[in-house]
Design a protein around this nucleic acid. Structure first.
Length: 211
DNA sequence: GAATAGATTGTCT
DNA sequence: GACAATCTATTCT
């Protein structure tokens, strides 16, 4: 809605479509760590700094929903233009949010696995039914979608403009961690690829890595 | 802190 | 009819 309440850190303008188009999915996954995901709704504005991502690089990547050149209804967005949302339901009850990577026609996407709340933490807590200050608010793909109010409605949504967009985070060097992706054991050799990225030492990262 | 089971539904075989 | 890029409560050490 309106401008954020005083006391909240300022938000930069949305990252443009070029930001998503000019990077391979692996570089995009790295570069998204530290960016801020913003969602403006009637309930208010929420923003969280991305602290954990995973790259999915179909059709070769057997962990990707677009593996084997799969081009079904669910994964259509992965094949679409970069800088749009790929949202899917998993385990029948949680939504997961991805940023589609380029180039168009390559089914690549970056899963956002964890956020550090920046703005609207009270609203996030309300959506999650948790007390303010809970560390489990946004430390997982399903949790952050619930907290941010992201669901099926955002399938295919452009991410270079409100209401849902990415912005630059605070300046400063990020100590990046890197390791295998979570819960993709079914993908054979691909499960071992170090395509998960996180900010080292950040307490909001979902599955505790050895930093 | 670690391990386990149960929840629940759209999508594809 | 099986399964999934998960989360939570519960039950242990």
């Amino acid at each position: 809605m309106g401008s954020p309440p005083p006391g909240d850190p300022p938000l930069g303008p949305p990252l443009g479509a070029d930001f998503f188009a000019e990077r391979d999915v692996l570089r995009l996954a790295r570069d998204l760590v530290g960016k801020v995901l913003v969602h403006e709704t009637d309930e208010g504005t929420c923003a969280g700094r991305i602290v954990e991502t995973e790259a999915y690089r179909g059709p070769e990547d057997l962990a990707a929903h677009s593996s084997h050149g799969r081009r079904t209804g669910r994964v259509a967005a992965m094949w679409g233009p970069p800088g749009h949302a790929y949202v899917f339901l998993l385990y029948g009850m949680h939504w997961a949010f991805n940023v589609v990577a380029g180039p168009e026609g390559d089914p690549h996407a970056v899963l956002v696995r964890a956020l550090e709340p920046v703005i609207g933490e009270d609203l996030m807590a309300r959506r999650r039914g948790l007390a303010l200050g809970a560390r489990t608010l946004t430390n997982g793909p399903g949790k952050l979608c619930a907290a941010m109010g992201i669901d099926k409605r955002h399938y295919g949504a452009p991410l270079d403009r409100p209401p849902l967009y990415l912005a630059d985070g605070p300046r400063g060097r990020i100590r990046l961690g890197r390791g295998p992706r979570i819960n993709v054991d079914y993908a054979g050799d691909w499960a071992a690829r170090p395509w998960r990225f996180w900010e080292r030492g950040n307490p909001w990262v979902s599955v505790k890595p050895r930093d």
